[in-house]
Amino acid sequence: MIQRTKIALIMPYFGNFPNYFALWECSASKNRDIDFLVFTNYPRENSYKNIIYIQCEFHEIKKRIEREIGFPPMLTNAYKIVDYKPLYGCIFHEYLKDYSHWGYCDSDVIFGDLSKFLTDARLNTYDRIYQHGHLCIYKNEHNINYRWKTEHNLISYNYKEVFKVKGVKMFDERGGMWDIWKENQWSQYLNDKEFADILPTKHEFTTSWNSNPMCFHYQSGHLYKYKNGINKTELAYLHLQKRKMEVQITNHDDFFIKPNLFCSTIDASPISITQIKQPIRPNKLKRIVNICFNFDEIRFHIKVAFRRFVMYIKGENRHIKYELY
Score class of each variant (00 low, 15 high):
residue 88 Y to Q: 02
residue 77 N to Q: 09
residue 65 I to A: 02
residue 278 Q to H: 07
residue 108 D to A: 03
residue 206 T to N: 09
residue 112 G to A: 06
residue 82 V to C: 14
residue 27 S to N: 13
residue 320 I to M: 10
residue 187 S to P: 07
residue 128 R to C: 14
residue 282 P to H: 04
residue 136 C to H: 14
residue 239 H to G: 01
residue 166 K to S: 07
residue 319 H to I: 15
residue 154 L to Y: 10
residue 225 K to F: 08
residue 89 G to P: 08
residue 233 T to Y: 01
residue 182 K to T: 12
residue 241 Q to P: 02
residue 159 Y to S: 04
residue 110 I to G: 04
residue 173 E to V: 07
residue 10 I to H: 03
residue 108 D to F: 07
residue 39 F to V: 07
residue 178 W to P: 07
residue 41 N to W: 01
residue 169 K to D: 01
residue 26 C to R: 15
residue 195 F to W: 08
residue 106 D to M: 05
residue 144 I to S: 09
residue 243 R to K: 13
residue 154 L to C: 05
residue 108 D to M: 12
residue 237 Y to M: 07
residue 111 F to L: 06
residue 258 K to N: 10
residue 180 I to G: 00
residue 71 F to E: 08
residue 281 R to G: 02
residue 284 K to N: 04
residue 313 I to A: 02
residue 292 C to N: 08
residue 315 G to V: 06
residue 310 V to T: 11
residue 83 D to S: 04
residue 103 G to L: 02
residue 150 T to W: 01
residue 216 F to E: 05
residue 218 Y to P: 01
residue 187 S to Y: 03
residue 200 P to Y: 05
residue 125 T to Y: 13
residue 207 T to P: 15
residue 321 K to Y: 00
residue 10 I to G: 01
residue 286 K to G: 13
residue 171 F to G: 01
residue 10 I to L: 07
residue 213 P to F: 06
residue 100 S to Y: 04
residue 108 D to T: 00
residue 63 K to S: 12
residue 43 P to G: 03
residue 277 K to F: 12
residue 13 Y to S: 02
residue 36 F to D: 09
residue 105 C to Q: 01
residue 270 P to Q: 05
residue 320 I to V: 13
residue 105 C to Y: 00
residue 75 L to N: 00
residue 34 I to F: 00
residue 189 Y to R: 06
residue 42 Y to E: 10
residue 161 E to I: 03
residue 287 R to Q: 15
residue 188 Q to H: 15
residue 278 Q to N: 13
residue 157 Y to I: 03
residue 155 I to C: 07
residue 238 L to Y: 02
residue 201 T to Q: 10
residue 311 M to V: 01
residue 108 D to Q: 14
residue 305 A to W: 08
residue 143 N to M: 11
residue 175 G to M: 06
residue 68 E to C: 08
residue 83 D to E: 06
residue 91 I to C: 04
residue 223 L to Y: 08
residue 206 T to R: 15
